[in-house]
Amino acid sequence: WIARINAAVRAYGLNYSTFINGLKKAGIELDRKILADMAVRDPQAFEQVVNKVKEALQV
């Protein structure tokens, strides 16, 4: 799951650890299995999560 998430978030200019930190700051409580599945099956929803994380990180 970690490898999938890392590959997906790198397309948005983040790395895995920064993304996970941003999830916590944004108050998003999705587990890694769901995030990895979302990255593959629903990229639009995953992009929305990434955008919320970037807002929380102020990137």
Score class of each variant (00 low, 15 high):
W1S: 15
I2W: 15
I2Q: 04
I2S: 00
I2L: 06
I2N: 02
A3T: 05
A3S: 09
A3F: 02
R4E: 15
R4W: 07
I5E: 00
N6R: 10
N6G: 09
N6S: 15
A7S: 07
A8H: 04
A8K: 04
V9G: 01
V9S: 02
V9I: 09
R10S: 12
R10C: 05
R10G: 10
R10H: 09
R10A: 13
R10F: 10
A11H: 09
Y12W: 06
Y12P: 00
Y12L: 05
G13R: 04
G13D: 06
G13A: 05
G13Y: 02
L14E: 01
N15A: 07
N15H: 08
N15Q: 06
Y16F: 05
S17M: 11
T18W: 04
T18C: 07
T18M: 09
F19Y: 02
F19P: 00
F19G: 00
F19T: 00
F19S: 00
I20E: 06
I20S: 10
I20K: 09
G22V: 02
G22N: 03
G22Y: 03
L23W: 03
L23P: 00
L23M: 12
K24H: 09
K24W: 08
K24P: 04
K24M: 11
K25L: 10
G27C: 05
G27P: 02
G27H: 14
I28H: 04
E29P: 14
E29C: 14
E29F: 15
L30D: 07
L30M: 14
L30F: 13
D31Q: 11
R32G: 15
R32C: 14
R32I: 15
R32T: 14
R32Q: 15
R32M: 15
K33S: 13
K33R: 10
K33L: 07
L35C: 03
L35N: 01
A36G: 06
D37V: 08
D37A: 05
D37H: 14
D37R: 13
D37T: 12
M38K: 04
M38Q: 06
M38D: 02
A39C: 04
A39H: 04
V40G: 13
V40C: 15
V40A: 13
R41E: 14
R41F: 11
R41N: 14
D42G: 03
D42Y: 06
D42R: 11
D42N: 10
D42Q: 10
D42E: 10
Q44V: 10
A45N: 10
A45R: 12
A45P: 02
A45E: 10
F46V: 01
E47A: 12
E47Q: 09
E47Y: 08
Q48G: 10
V49A: 04
V49I: 14
V49K: 02
V49W: 03
V50Q: 01
V50D: 00
V50L: 03
V50W: 01
N51P: 00
K52A: 09
V53Q: 00
V53R: 01
V53K: 00
V53W: 01
K54E: 04
E55N: 12
E55S: 12
Q58H: 07
Q58V: 08
V59T: 13
V59F: 14
V59H: 11
